[in-house]
Design a protein around this nucleic acid. Sequence first.
DNA 1: CACTTACGTAAGTAGATGCTAACGTATCTA
DNA 2: TAGATACGTTAGCATCTACTTACGTAAGTG
Lengths: 107, 107
Amino acid sequence: MDAAFKALAEPRRREILKLVWSRELPATEIAQQFGDVTRSAVSQHLSVLRESQLVTERRDGVRRLYRANHTEMNRLRRFLEEYWDDSLERLQYLAEAAEREKGISNG
Amino acid sequence: MDAAFKALAEPRRREILKLVWSRELPATEIAQQFGDVTRSAVSQHLSVLRESQLVTERRDGVRRLYRANHTEMNRLRRFLEEYWDDSLERLQYLAEAAEREKGISNG
DNA sequence: CACTTACGTAAGTAGATGCTAACGTATCTA
DNA sequence: TAGATACGTTAGCATCTACTTACGTAAGTG
């Protein structure tokens, strides 16, 4: 959990995470998206993301395919929600959430 | 937004944030909660939290009272939600959310 | 005025972090 | 086997960060 926060604190890692959010990508292709950084740096970022469980790795021959771990991101979301759960201010949050919910879902 | 992430990456600052989540506290009292750190260090943490808008400050004579800024925390929560909004995986998230919702609210 | 209280700020330091360049290592192909 | 490909890892460096100590300052008290 602590690791996940630190991992997300770095903007570059958040960008990487977005790249592999809804699709699997090999490391090289991820690195190619950034013009101002080497493949090595991206590889190290991927290590951090992997160790903090924010991405998963799958081998495919020579390549390594990365993908965001939505479960872990959910855990992070829930952690933030705990701040509300721990206090009465939760009521205020629920009111705001209801406001936002109006135009989003019906079930 | 970037500043908020970096601020929360530090465990000590998350602890401070929890202390002032549902009540206003003067800097000295916050520092007293930690036995392994000086008042100066806490003061510097409070600066970071203030600059990232995660806490607000109010003067009261000699003291400075701090309090968590729930609005900013909400912004952070919503930022994480954008990761879902940006992809079709949102459907999966909604399914999970529905599961959790069962025992929580009815409107 | 001097003194205390409650706080921020500056200086200095040990350790973490993000980066590049260079090297090491599987996996595939000929 | 040799060589290319796709990647991780290491060494080294500049910068950032969390901390302590020491100092500066506004607000209250005598």
